[in-house]
Nucleic acid binder design. Structure first.
Lengths: 246, 246
DNA sequence: GTAATAGTGTCTATAAGACACTATTGA
DNA sequence: TCAATAGTGTCTTATAGACACTATTAC
């Protein structure tokens, strides 16, 4: 009997239900900008456990239809927001005997950035309400289900860190935007103001955005419109934004 | 009936085995320095699946004895190396229907740094051999089990990235070390040489190491010995090492 | 004109790389 | 003295922050 035949035999007799394995799910921190505020999508849970509590959206892997973890997350994102996401990345995985009352559980946490435009939030049987809330409000006033306050804090920290050395905030803006709008987005996430000249020099030197030739006309001097090069939604700068000196 | 009583009722009737959930494991890329080479610990699998193939060490969560994922990883590390690790961090989580022949599986990958001193590698019923192999050798010549070549590559990339802006390599050296030894360790990981003056300026300015007062005597001019401040095994520098200019 | 926002010129500050130099040991 | 490694002095380069300045629009 060859090794391969023996392995086939092993697999035929293998039953996952004989083993103690943890519950495994995914959770998402979905960020967007609305009314000049960084907001996060929360759902009010319609099912046990933690029924009636606010939580990050998430759910279980569908072993039949999901080929990979990314499929699971994309499916969940679409169920709640109905739109494609601009940016998605894994943040961390949390596992312990006590984080879920059902028993040992593991959750893989993702962070997503989406453009808030023409989005209709979708409730379903798992969530009786779906809302965008400002990140500051949540951190100050909301007790989320499970360990979701920790997951949210870690995801926000990841976002803030990456905004210092990448071009990620481009994913929160529409196809075309002005440099002032982009700077404002960076500032909203970082929580402090950036020097205008430094910001423009940095973005233009990186050659990750191109002028469209159009202008945004407002009540004042019109501003050049730019769009991001396809490859530049996550450009890594060589140096970080340092913030104001004292 | 209150919400809480209803939730208790829900939990009493909850049976995890009714649901399709993935196999969930942890895998580790354990780095050390030996003979001026960056090496990784590999095991030859003694059990199906992938029996007889080289793989990263790992295993399943023990739902009874492990309180958290970190407990699982610490336990596994100790099983193989018998020593405490200097640095441990999560790298990423991999999940798909096809990565393990037993079915849908998720693995949480960790990267560890350990000091190679007085370590006796330990084989057990799950691994017939346990060895340190140079990272370059593995990447060039070894077909690892499952998706472990990818996990290894991602972990090594994470290590290289962090070495550019943190003090992580301190974790690969003994209690006391010279600046030249530390620089050599940085260089082995990065794969290129660092300018000596820049390196020393950077490390000393950060105030993360202190002179012990002792000297390392060799065949040449003796070198000052330093030890790391307790809090400085993972110092984040403001700027990255940039590498040679052209 | 003024207010408001877009956009620039140019200085300083910080920390990295380059590279030649000096220092201290063993043999 | 020489080879080898430890350690320094100092110049250049790159890019960030500061801040005052000019430019263009609506009113």
């Amino acid at each position: 009997m060859s090794i391969t035949e023996t392995q086939s035999h092993f697999l035929e007799n293998y039953d996952i239900h004989e083993f103690d394995i943890p519950l495994t799910s995914v959770d998402m921190t979905i960020f967007t900008i609305e009314d000049d505020l960084l907001k996060v999508l929360l759902v009010k849970r319609a099912q046990f456990p933690a029924k009636g509590e606010w939580a990050l959206p998430g759910g279980f892997i569908n072993l039949k239809s999901d080929g990979t973890l990314n499929d699971t997350v994309s499916r969940k994102l679409k169920e709640k927001t109905g739109v494609e996401i601009s940016h998605l990345e894994q943040v961390a995985t949390y596992g312990s005997a006590v984080r879920d009352p059902r028993g040992w559980s593991v959750t893989i946490a993702y962070m997503a950035l989406i453009l808030n435009e023409n989005i209709t939030l979708i409730s379903d049987e798992s969530s009786e309400e779906v809302v965008w809330l400002p990140i500051g409000d949540i951190q100050d006033n909301y007790q989320l289900a499970f360990d979701h306050n920790v997951i949210l804090a870690d995801s926000y920290q990841r976002l803030k860190n990456k905004v210092q050395y990448t071009s990620l905030p481009i994913n929160l803006l529409p196809q075309t935007f002005t440099l002032s709008e982009l700077q404002k987005t960076f500032e909203l996430i970082l929580g402090y103001n950036i020097e205008k000249k430094s910001f423009r020099r940095r973005l233009l030197a990186a050659e990750i955005i191109v002028e469209t030739g159009e202008m945004r006309v407002g009540s004042n001097r019109p501003a050049k419109l730019y769009c991001a090069k396809a490859s530049s939604k996550e450009h890594f700068f060589q140096r970080s934004i340092e913030g104001p000196r004292n």
